[in-house]
Every structure is written in structure tokens, then in C-alpha cells.
Design a binder for these strands. Sequence first.
DNA 1: AGGGTGACCTGTCGGC
DNA 2: TGCCGACAGGTCACCC
Length: 271
Amino acid sequence: MPELPEVEVTRQSFAHRIARSRIVSVTLGKPLRWPLGCPPSDLVGRTVLGVRRRGKYLLFDLDRGLLLVHLGMSGSLSFANDLPPAGVHDHFELLTTTGMLRLHDPRRFGAVVFAPGEQAPMAKKLLGRLGMEPLAGEFDPLLFARGLKARRACIKQVLLAGELVVGVGNIYASEALFQAGIRPTAQASGLSRARADRLHGAVRDVLGRAVERGGSTLRDFSNADGAAGHYQLEAMVYGRDGQACRVCGSTIKSIRQGQRSSFFCHTCQRN
DNA sequence: AGGGTGACCTGTCGGC
DNA sequence: TGCCGACAGGTCACCC
């Protein structure tokens, strides 16, 4: 479910409320992608200093150590004082002095992992190879263009891999490539500097606008307050195969790349 | 070494 | 109505 915009929107919806709270109790449901990495009771009494985001991970800074939270494909967080009783797909609950944080994740591709610090082995394994943050100043056009030159793969795959730039998932990869006029099948290394620059701008634009719209709610995403996103309403290509391109009227096509769907306009986008 | 593939898990939807 | 396969917002471990 969640790409960078959904994760960031989630963070913004509760980070200020959980900051400076103290952990009262921890409840685990079914196993997630990785084990927590410490006995749940070890977290009790610790203070949540704040919540940052790195790529699609939320980093909960504690007074000692941090929690890494990933929403996988189907995860969402809720934070409130009056949540309904936990259901079968609620697999992690953090009761704090300012509210209850709950992870709902039917497919359980998500994870909650404790690490003593960002240099701890598990934290390095998960965060160590992540690329540039697309909405931060570090997202440099020249570095981006150089990175593309070095990859022998389709541009769509390079965006999804997250080693060059993080946070671009299956929806926003198709959308950014449309905005840049580049087909998902184009070879990354073959893009001119001008087209690389256009893609750099498109990634920033698309993700930034999606955050402003509250993310995309395709089936069930909502932020920690339960609010849905609206960016899906302005999708130009994602999920629109067979429909008319909003720019030129051509029929939007869908192809499979690496067992994922890609959507593009044959006319507006070129290899 | 980098790039492709399978695996993880549950729910939903379309077709027969 | 029921069954079955395909597919869904991610990404790691493994193979060549």
C-alpha cells in the first residue's frame, strides 16, 4: 500500500502527538516480516522522543534505541485514545501516555523492529543501502543522472529499487515517468542528461503533490487519524489501462515488469 | 557484481 | 453460488 507520500502523511498525522510520550505497554499479534528484536517488555517505560521518516520507514526515536516501522503492502497506523478493540489483522500495539498506536496489516509484509541505534546490524541492514531522499535537498540532479548512467536496467526498475532514490513505489513510478515523458521500459543508462533532469523534477513534483493531497487511497489507506488520501483522483496513468490519456487521448497501456504492472501512454512517453 | 526471480501472506475480484 | 487463478501500494534472499 504505502509509498513515500502515504508514509509521510501518516507520520505527519500523529508524530506531534506521540512525541515525549512514555511507553506503557506493548502488545504483539501475529508475526510480521521480522521479529521485534527485543522482549516487548523491554520497551515499557521508554520515552518516544519523536518520529522521523527514511524512505518508506518510520523511525521512532526512543530515549534508548529506536523502533523501525515499515507498512509493507497493506499496513496502516492508527493513533488515538479511543481505538476499537483490536481485530485479527492488528499485529502491533504501543500504548503510550498520550494515546494508543496500532499497526493494522492484513498481509503482514510490514515490520516493527527495535534497534539499539542506527548503526546496529539490523538497522544498517534495513537502512544502509537506501538512496537519496527525493523531497530533501540532498536529491541532486547530477548525482541522480550519474546513478542512472551506471544502471543497466529499465528505468522503472531502477526507480523501484530505491538504491538511487527512495520512496518511489509502483504508483508514483508510473506517474513520474508519465510526467517526464519517459516509457517505463527505457534503459536507465540510455537517458540523456536532459531527460534525467526532467525525471528528477517529476519524481519531486509527483511525490510532493501526493503528500499535499494526503497520499493515494486505492482500497484502504488512511493516515493515523483515519483520513483517506485523494491523490489517486489525479493519477494520469496508474490503474487507467484501456482509458484515454488525459493529455492526448491515446489509450493507456499496461505491461508487466518484474511481476509488477506498469502503466504508460504510448504517445506521450518515449523510450 | 548486478540484475532477474521467487518468496513471504491475506483479501478481493473477475471469469467460468 | 462456488471455485480458481490473477492480482494488489514492498523488498529481501537467492540464483546465474
